[in-house]
Design a protein around this nucleic acid. Structure first.
Lengths: 188, 188
DNA sequence: GTCTATAATTCGATAGAC
DNA sequence: GTCTATCGAATTATAGAC
């Protein structure tokens, strides 16, 4: 009995989180109202507060996502650019996940809390993943520019939706960006 | 007499616009309140409405900025990457201008009106400037990736403030990005 | 666990005195 | 042209019934 209620509350909690990510990703923090999030989740607005305490804590919970970069240790350097762009763009391309990644990039622009989250995620996951493939020294030399380029593609494609970058199939996009990534690795 | 009043109202109008750009650039559209903008401009909140009609029209006026890219027609191709990065980053580096450029990049992430403004500015000014130097065909082939890369640097440095890109002197940053820009021009 | 009702703020915008 | 006072709407968050 208690188990049933617990399961049900788990589902409610996840429904709230899913709806919150959708709204935060689409409209940013301020314009996303608890009422609208609750409506999307088909529950009462007061439940959002009951489950997450406040709008700000709900936002924090929504920001808790992963790049899910694989371990690149041992990847041959000529395959690294392709691996980087493929795995880096994957969480954005994959729409089964309702905008939890776009959320970070979008909100980091006007919300310091989200920005700190994104910086830390890039520092811990992206840079570390790179270090496994390139070693500490070269990863430090290349990491910044690589991050800027990949962030640029993501911002242009998923946030700003600027053509032609926003319209290309992901494979064509990768082809277009690969030469630059190779250059960075070669010159770093 | 009428002239004196007109000049004074001109100053007031400009003070409001300057304060608005500061707040919009720092906090985005929603979190920037008319009251706070008026306080920064040292005037009464109702004057903001009187001068600009509404918060939204004030926002539109704040978005009306220029990349001020020079005419690149005839620029030798080996000098083009350096010219691009220098002139593209200039309006962001120049802090005499109180964040009117950062405003665009930041707000475009969560405000469709700002996004449309930025897209149009890039389309009209950046792409056209490139067309003068490369011709229509090659400008179309290279423009997208170049825009993504430069936007990536700008987003990383001025909006996200991710190190090391955010901390580098602008000359060192240009050196770091130049190889990639050359590669794009060479492969486009 | 869920919902109704509402308290407490805060905001954009207006009316009118000076 | 500028300021005081305030309206009306929207928001987060809470209290308490069921």
């Amino acid at each position: 009995m208690a188990q049933l209620l617990t399961r049900r509350s788990q589902r409610t909690r996840e429904a709230i989180l899913r709806a919150a990510r959708m709204h935060f990703a689409a409209d940013g923090y301020q314009r996303s109202t608890i009422r609208a999030i609750a409506a999307t989740a088909s529950i009462d607005p007061s439940l959002v507060i009951r489950y997450f305490g406040s709008k700000e804590r709900l936002f924090d919970a929504s920001l808790d996502v992963d790049l899910e970069l694989p371990d690149l240790t041992g990847t041959p350097e000529e395959l690294l650019p392709q691996a980087l762009i493929t795995h880096f763009l994957a969480p954005w391309e994959n729409d089964s996940d309702e905008g939890s990644m776009r959320l970070l990039l979008r909100c980091a622009a006007t919300n310091e809390r989200a920005a700190e989250h994104l910086r830390q995620m890039l520092h811990e996951q992206f840079t570390d993943s790179l270090r496994g493939a390139l070693g500490a020294e070269r990863a430090a030399a290349c990491g910044g520019v690589l991050a800027a380029q990949l962030l640029g593609v993501a911002y242009t494609r998923y946030v700003l939706r600027l053509r032609p970058i926003a319209d290309l199939p992901v494979a064509a996009l990768a082809e277009l960006v690969l030469p630059s990534l190779r250059t960075v690795l070669a010159s770093g």
